[in-house]
Design a binder for these strands. Structure first.
Length: 479
RNA sequence: GGUCUCGUAGUAUAGCGGUUAGUACAUCGGGUUUUCAUCCCGACAAUGCGGGUUCGACUCCCGCCGAGAUCACCA
């Protein structure tokens, strides 16, 4: 089969964590089957339309590495890819329904409909518009909504994730096909578009599962085969049991990019949240995902969004890129994440800093706070020194003489390399008869005044002889 | 209220009639010459409840309970 999938967002704002999976899964599935992925913008609701939202959507997909074969920017044979530009197409299909007696113009005023609805609520019976179908229906013309004429019956179908489904006639109703403003509803537009575009698999959130019988009825009335339905379970908010939405503070996908989350990690996390291949593998490249993805292993229950695990995975990816592709590969990803002062130093120096600090990054933005002292003189904070748990038992004069001994020892190091520095530090340890915790804490704090830093010899090596000795001297004098 | 879906540790999951119920994140403890992190080792911790079917149920069936979705001229 020639697989064609699509991602069909409405341009109402940014793409957030809760809904990006309905772009990822169809992408993986299309690539796996050498099929096509279509991007279609569902902009039929003029009230919710947000200027610039389409750019945001495209931006997000590109960042995640999800390219599309047809759609905005790239074009294609089944355009236009904005629903607002396809109005005649919907009207054409709508007329077929009118001609076959399966759609009617509904002149009933909205207030009247509300009244029906209230009536049903009071009587505690389900509200079905088909029970209030108007007896006289006018010709369909602009300004009057067009409704589907339901023929209640049972439906059986298979959902690729949820399995065999069955519903009775009570779920079928006269849903609106074309709104009074002439724009189609989602319910109608997506069916027409998917048919015209040859879409074979529809992947969307489970919230559409309940509407599926109504869609089935429309496919039937239109004489269309329906595509494979793939219902994706919700991603749940960190607390409560509701699906993750903007109201729960669901961040936009690109917000994570700005924090220094790698697209590899984001993709990896989002896919594995609700899908796994049955093995114990955790880290997957995009290629592996394309290779191993399968619809039948998509989870049926909702999965809670866990930012902590995302960050853990990001750390894994940061290390993986460094270890497998080298320092430069990781460095290329760090643009914009360094503290401003770092720009006064050379790229080469920044790479050296990255090489010793990368394994403690959770997000790239950590560089901003974690590397300052490599690029500017740290602020002297003697309290930090004196109150350190290993140093507080020593007198100030003892600290001072230790620092002086350190300066003397390190000054004698002719070749300022990590190995030589480590040797010198080891000798110093023996000569001063101090524990590593005491001596090394002292030196570490004196050169960085940071809550933590990489291994001492590496830190000193990168800092360089001049800077290291100067900082030690400054502290020795100030104590 | 009708209809539909879901239910393994705090979280994400493995399991597909017989297992000491596995793994990862988180948490707690320990190790790797300081710190933070990485890495390694260890600990804690789960089959919603009740009936069946079966020699034997997390697994199959039924009921209950709990959670969610939907019932818009929004998608």
């Amino acid at each position: 089969m020639n697989v064609i999938t699509r991602f069909a967002p409405s341009p109402t704002g940014y793409i957030h964590i809760g809904n990006v999976r309905s772009a990822i899964y169809p992408y993986l599935f299309a690539r796996q089957n050498d099929g096509k992925m279509i991007l279609r913008i569902e902009d039929t609701d003029r009230e919710r339309y947000v200027e610039g939202a389409t750019d945001l959507i495209e931006d997000t997909l590109k960042w995640l590495g999800l390219d599309w074969d047809e759609g905005p920017i790239v074009g294609g044979d089944h355009g236009p890819y904005f629903q607002s530009e396809r109005l005649e197409i919907y009207h054409r299909w709508a007329r077929k329904l009118i001609e076959s007696g399966r759609a009617y113009a509904d002149p009933t005023p909205a207030e009247k409909i509300d009244e029906y609805r209230r009536e049903c609520t009071e009587k505690k019976v389900p509200f079905l518009y088909r029970n209030f179908r108007p007896t006289e229906t006018p010709e369909w013309e602009p300004g009057i909504p067009l409704r589907f004429k339901a023929e209640p019956k049972d439906y059986n179908w298979t959902d690729a994730v949820m399995g065999d489904m069955h519903t009775g006639p009570e779920v079928l109703d006269d849903i609106i096909l074309i709104k009074k403003d002439g724009y189609p509803t989602y319910n109608f537009a997506h069916i027409v578009d998917d048919a015209e575009m040859g879409v074979t698999h529809i992947m969307r959130g489970v919230e559409y599962l309940s509407s599926t019988p109504n869609y089935l009825a429309i496919y039937e009335a239109l004489g269309l085969e329906h595509p494979v339905f793939v219902s994706l379970p919700h991603i749940l908010a960190p607390t409560g049991n509701k699906k993750l939405g903007k109201r729960d503070g669901a961040k936009s996908v690109t917000e994570y990019r700005d924090d220094g989350v790698l697209p590899e990690a984001m993709l990896n996390y989002l896919v594995s949240l609700g899908w796994n291949d049955g093995t114990e593998q955790e880290i997957y490249t995009k290629e592996e995902l394309i290779d191993k993805f399968s619809l039948d292993k998509i989870q049926t229950s909702g999965a809670r969004y866990d930012e902590t695990k995302l960050y853990w995975m990001n750390g894994q990816w940061i290390r993986r890129i460094f270890d497998e592709q080298g320092c430069s590969a990781l460095y290329d990803r760090t643009e914009g994440f360094w503290p401003e002062v770092a720009m006064n130093s050379s790229e080469d120096y920044r790479k050296k800093v990255l090489a010793i600090i990368y394994d403690r990054l959770k997000v790239l933005a950590d560089l901003r706070e974690m590397t300052r002292y490599f690029f500017e003189e740290p602020k002297l904070d003697l309290d930090m020194l004196v109150n350190n748990k290993f140093l507080k038992k020593m007198s100030e004069s003892e600290l001072e003489s230790l620092l002086k001994a350190t300066v003397a020892k390190l000054t004698a190091v002719s070749d300022w390399t990590a190995d030589n520095l480590q040797n010198a530090l080891n000798e110093l340890l023996a000569e001063t008869d101090k524990k590593p915790a005491e001596l090394f804490s002292l030196i570490r704090i004196a050169v960085s005044f940071a809550p933590f830093s990489p291994a001492l010899n590496l830190t000193l090596e990168v800092l360089g002889r001049e800077t290291s000795l100067a900082r030690l001297n400054t502290v020795a004098r100030s104590i």
